[in-house]
Design a protein around this nucleic acid. Structure first.
Lengths: 204, 204
DNA sequence: TGTACATCAGTGAACGCGCGTTCACTGATGTAC
DNA sequence: TGTACATCAGTGAACGCGCGTTCACTGATGTAC
């Protein structure tokens, strides 16, 4: 049998996780361009050569951070869904709210998630179950998909709308990104377009 | 009277424009991270110290490239509008098509346009007339704005949808970005959501 | 329980790289007279 | 028309910077016996 090695047994404890956390903090504080192996190492309190034992270059580190960020992104949406109403319409609204919230609180991490090459992370995720980030969206859209229709159409409509709004918001198109606690007065009216997807929910 | 100085009278001719063009080519060929003063200078055939006479650092160069890219972006949408149908619905469809086309053909330039800090470029543009990029969108949306409604709602709905779809498309979320000559089979059905904005056009 | 050894995470010095910037300069252009 | 001068775009060498990477090493941990 292959034994699971105890990764916490050596000097640092769990340097790999510490470097990922350091990387996320650097992203939040200083933006995408500041994410380097040397800075992550310094923040984690190790020498600059140490990360080479854990990641395949800066690309490997970015990938690992994207994976962790992706998981936090998913969790933010799940929390938002749980905290909101339970109707199909409320589910979609809440998830979009969580989507925007995550991006506003972690703009550089959000950008990193969506900039890791040809979306290997997403392809993996889209094939995964309902607990995946894309699965959360799929579940929320399902009640609105007309019988026999391709669910990807409505899923992509919802995803495009919230993704575009979020990007424009982060880019400052609607004014400073910290405008209101409600993020921006345009959010609710813009999202109201989704009241029109697929007519009424397919089931009560 | 203030005379307009002839900028073409010195050694190079118009190094400033040449550097901007070189920068756009570098963006297209090698991506955002490859855009440096030294590479632009090399591509334009001048020494690496020459750009300092024309731009305030790499930020100044990026800004100038964004401005030029923004203008090409606008022109692509105008051409798409002219080439398509003349109904209000066709105008919106054509503009969105041009939006996606530009991004697919110039992904790094598209990214640069939307990543230049707090969108000074856009703020300027949004205040400009109907010939501006935002003006093109505003004009196209106008027939769908119900009397008394805030036009920014519909404008932001359309903009968010096409912007999000474009970003997801470029990120490879729907598969390789060169999938079909028609870009992707999801484009038309996803954009059909816009048939629902503001009910019917306000005027015939 | 104790000893010898293998493993390997982390160290710290050194390397070459491309970057932006500085600076004295060159030499073509434009202008004053 | 011709001469002297001012301007300034572009040159090329030099600088310091942070980066990723290499490499011999150290020393704690885990294991074989």
């Amino acid at each position: 049998m292959v034994e699971v090695k105890d990764k916490k047994s050596h000097h640092h404890g769990d340097l790999r996780a510490a470097l990922i956390q350091s990387g996320i903090e650097i992203l939040t504080e200083s933006g995408l361009d500041s994410l380097t192996l040397r800075r992550c190492a310094a923040r984690a309190g190790v020498s600059h050569a140490a990360p080479a034992h854990h990641f395949d270059g800066v690309a490997g580190l970015r990938g690992a951070i994207a994976k962790e960020g992706f998981d936090r992104f998913r969790q933010t949406m799940l929390k938002a869904r749980a905290a909101g109403g339970q109707s199909p319409e409320a589910h979609i609204r809440s998830i979009c709210r969580g989507y925007l919230d995550f991006a506003v609180e972690n703009p550089a991490l959000f950008a990193l998630i969506f900039s890791c090459g040809p979306m290997a992370q997403f392809e993996e995720d889209m094939k995964a179950g309902d607990a995946s980030a894309y699965g959360v969206l799929r579940q929320a859209c399902a009640p609105f998909v007309p019988p026999g229709a391709d669910p990807r159409i409505i899923e992509t409509q919802v995803w495009s709308l919230i993704h575009g709004f979020t990007h424009l918001f982060l880019a400052g198109t609607f004014g400073p990104a910290n405008a209101t606690p409600d993020h921006h007065a345009l959010f609710a009216p813009v999202m109201s377009l989704l009241q029109k997807i697929g007519g009424e929910p397919a089931t009560g």
